[in-house]
Simulated assay, not measured.
Amino acid sequence: MKYIKAENILPESLVKQLQEYVNGDYIYVPRKEGEQRAWGEKSGTRAYLKERNQEIFNKYQEGETLQKLCEDYYLSEQSIRRILREEKKK
């Protein structure tokens, strides 16, 4: 997340009013209702993980062992089992 200086985008009167509540601290301003994106959509992380998890499931279906999948993807056995369980539901 990139921070923007309030003084660069807000009227001076609003900056002064905000300083009464958060003097020099960080504040998060949420998106307008209906404009929120799911985690990882903007960065592409969600798509990457979806593809990776499908790949793990396919390799397991082709006979790859849990241990080999753990080593190849640097994940714990518990994580691999969770991915397999979730992909099987689909």
Score class of each variant (00 low, 15 high):
K50M: 13
L66M: 14
E71T: 12
Y73H: 13
Y74P: 03
N53H: 12
D72K: 11
R82W: 11
E71C: 12
Y60Q: 05
S76F: 08
T65K: 09
E62R: 08
Y60R: 11
E71S: 08
I80Q: 00
Q67P: 00
S79R: 09
G63M: 03
E71A: 10
S76R: 04
Y60E: 05
E77V: 10
F57T: 00
S79C: 02
E62L: 13
L69C: 02
D72W: 11
Q67F: 14
L49N: 15
D72H: 06
R82Y: 13
C70S: 13
E55H: 11
E62K: 13
F57Q: 00
I80A: 00
Y48L: 11
R82M: 09
G63C: 04
L66Q: 13
Y74Q: 13
S76G: 07
E71F: 09
Y74S: 08
Y73C: 12
Y48Q: 10
E51G: 01
Y48T: 06
Q54K: 09
E77I: 03
K59N: 05
Q67K: 15
T65I: 08
E64S: 11
E71G: 02
C70H: 10
E55V: 02
N53D: 13
E51N: 10
K59S: 08
E62F: 00
K59F: 07
E64Y: 03
K59M: 13
Q54R: 14
E64M: 12
R82C: 05
S76V: 08
Y48C: 03
K68H: 12
Q78W: 03
T65E: 14
C70T: 10
C70Y: 08
G63R: 11
I83H: 01
